[in-house]
Amino acid sequence: MNIIVCIKQVPETTQVQIDPKTNTLIREGVQSIINPFDMYAIEEGIRIKEKFGGKVTVITMGPPQAECALREAISLGCDEGILLSDRAFAGSDTLATGYTLAMAIKKIKEFDIIICGKQASDGDTAQVGPGISAHLDIPQITYVKKIEEIQDGHATVERMTEEGFEILKTPLPCLITVVKEINEPRIPSLKGMMKAKKAVIATWKALDIEAEEYRIGLKGSPTQVVKIFTPPPRPKGQIFDGTPEESVEKLIGILKNHLI
C-alpha cells in the first residue's frame, strides 16, 4: 500500500495581528506547527501502513522551513518526506496549490490512497484536498471519520455529515480528507525522532514536477486578496456584577423590553 499524506505548516496560534502600516500579517515570533487536522491524516496513514504494509510519503508545499514539518511527520512513522519549495510557488491560492500537489503526486506515480486533513487552521478553506483529487481525476471522499476496511482494491469509509454519517465504498486510488474523530494521533518515539533528524528530505521545484508556469504561484491563482483587516470589535456589552438576584432582575428587565 502506497500512502501519500499532504500536510501544511501553519502558525501555532490563530491570534495573528495585522501590521497597520504594511497591511500584512505579522508572522514574526509565531511558531510554526503542522496543521492540527493534518496530524490525524498522518496518524491514519501510519495506521494503514502498520496494517497492510507499504510506505507513507508525506508532502508539503511551503518555504524551506516547512522541512521541519516533514521531519516531525517522519518522527511519527512516515517513511519519506518531499518538500515542494520554489519561489515560483509563492502566492498560490487553493487552485494553484491543488495543482502543484497533484503534479508532485503524479511524479511519485505509485499511490493507492492520498490522505489530507479536512482543512487548514489558518485558511479554513477545505478546498485543497478535493482540488488535488479533481486534478488527478480520482474519486474523493471528504470528512472521513472511519476507514472500515481496505480490501480488493477498494476502501469502505464512513463520511461525516451534518445529520450523522454515510458509508461509502470507492475504488483505489482515491483521496480522503479526515476529521478529528478518526483517530488519536500518537506521540513520536525517540527512535523516530532520531531517524527524522537524519532523514534526507527531497526538495522539488516547479521544473522537477513539470508544472506549467501559468498554473502555479501567483500566475496560476485566479483569486486575489485585495484587503485584509481586523474584524471590528463588538460594542462593549453591559456587565452586571451585583448579587445574583439583582443581576438576573436587570437582565430580565432588558430582555423583556426588546426580545421576548
Partner: peptide
C-alpha cells in the same frame, strides 16, 4: 459552505479553472 458544498464546489472549480473563495 456545508459538508456537501465544500466538497462539490472545490472539485467543480478545478474542472472549470475558476477562482473559488471558501466560507
Amino acid at each position: 459552505a456545508t459538508s456537501i458544498g465544500r466538497a462539490l464546489i472545490s472539485r467543480v472549480a478545478v474542472k472549470l479553472h475558476a477562482g473559488l473563495t471558501a466560507d
